[in-house]
């Protein structure tokens, strides 16, 4: 079982705090157009640091794949 963070799109306000706390490069991307964050789940190690910092509780750890 692999753990990765999942984003609840509606809750994200694009504050980017999660991007600054993530130890993994190029996992959380910021879209200038929609002013929201997107997660590259394949590269996320599921440490959960972003979950702890998100003020909107838009991020949550979840299991992915098998």
């Amino acid at each position: 079982m692999y753990v990765a963070v999942k984003l609840e799109d509606g809750k994200c306000t694009g504050c980017k705090l999660c991007i600054f706390i993530c130890p993994e490069p190029n996992v959380l991307k910021f879209s200038k157009e929609v002013k929201k964050v997107a997660v590259n789940e394949g590269r996320c190690k599921g440490c959960g640091l972003c979950v702890t910092i998100c003020p909107k509780e838009a991020l949550a750890s979840a299991s992915i794949g098998n």
Binding site: P25, F30, V37
Partner: peptide
Amino acid sequence: GTFKELLEEHPLCAG
């Protein structure tokens, strides 16, 4: 988050 970072996927521990 808006550019390709200089660091690529690495094998260090979660967190």
